[in-house]
Design a protein around this nucleic acid. Structure first.
Length: 210
DNA sequence: ATCCCGAGGG
DNA sequence: CCCTCTGGAT
């Protein structure tokens, strides 16, 4: 896409969703961090169903440690990969209490040092909880960036770097959510809904698969 | 490259 | 049945 087309692409996604926000339910930075860790290879819907009751009781790392690993597993056993996620959330809570006074650090290195937290999760927390213009590349954004030609790349990191270069600065803070919503509801993995896509005419797949 | 690993949709 | 879902650690 040319710079003009990219500007147009984001303008349309923005018009379709003026106030985009995370669809992962959370009440503070800690619950956001937990929700994002739980969301790996899982749907936000499934995560929200499990965290609704969990976050009624637990909103701090200290409370998470009181609940304990077995108690946590009871809440999240309907989510895929729940054994390793439970272990990581407990270990991560211990580390927050020990090294950060129970607070979630607004720092990439400190976030990525937490068990179960990689670059993508750190980028979500930095963006949503701390308002930083990061680009968390998940399965949706990876697919949309490649399919549309917005920022082609073979790895999530390559796509992240490409997006940071081509996304107009004014759209950067919310670009993560616009792209993810577009991927989740319109530019879907299996059967993309090209007939209702607001950016249909900008897509290289026009005339090929749609 | 491989493991972890349940729910929902088509 | 098969594929997908806001990945990370080894």
């Amino acid at each position: 896409m040319t710079p003009v087309q990219i500007e147009s692409f984001f303008a349309r996604l923005a018009a379709a969703n003026p106030e985009p926000k995370s669809e992962l339910e959370h009440v503070n930075a800690f619950t956001l961090l937990v929700a994002v860790v739980l969301s790996a290879q899982a749907t936000d819907k499934g995560v929200n169903k499990a965290t609704r009751a969990l976050f009624e009781q637990v909103t701090t790392p200290q409370a998470m440690l009181e609940l304990g690993e077995d108690g946590l597993k009871e809440h999240i056993k309907t989510i895929g990969l729940f054994n390793s996620k439970a272990r990581n959330v407990i270990a991560l809570s211990e580390q927050l209490v020990r090294d950060h006074g129970g607070a979630v650090p607004a720092d990439r290195a400190a976030l990525e040092a937490l068990p179960g937290v990689g670059r993508k999760t750190a980028n979500v927390v930095l963006n949503v909880a701390f308002g930083q213009p990061t680009m968390a590349v998940d399965t949706h954004i990876f697919r949309v960036a490649n399919r549309t030609g917005l920022a082609p790349g073979k790895t999530p990191r390559a796509v992240e770097d490409g997006l940071l270069k081509v996304v107009p600065p004014a759209y950067l803070l919310h670009a993560h959510h616009w792209l993810i919503l577009h991927g989740r509801y319109t530019c879907t993995a299996r059967k993309p809904k090209c007939d209702t896509c607001p950016a249909h005419d900008l897509c290289p797949r026009l005339g090929v698969a749609c």
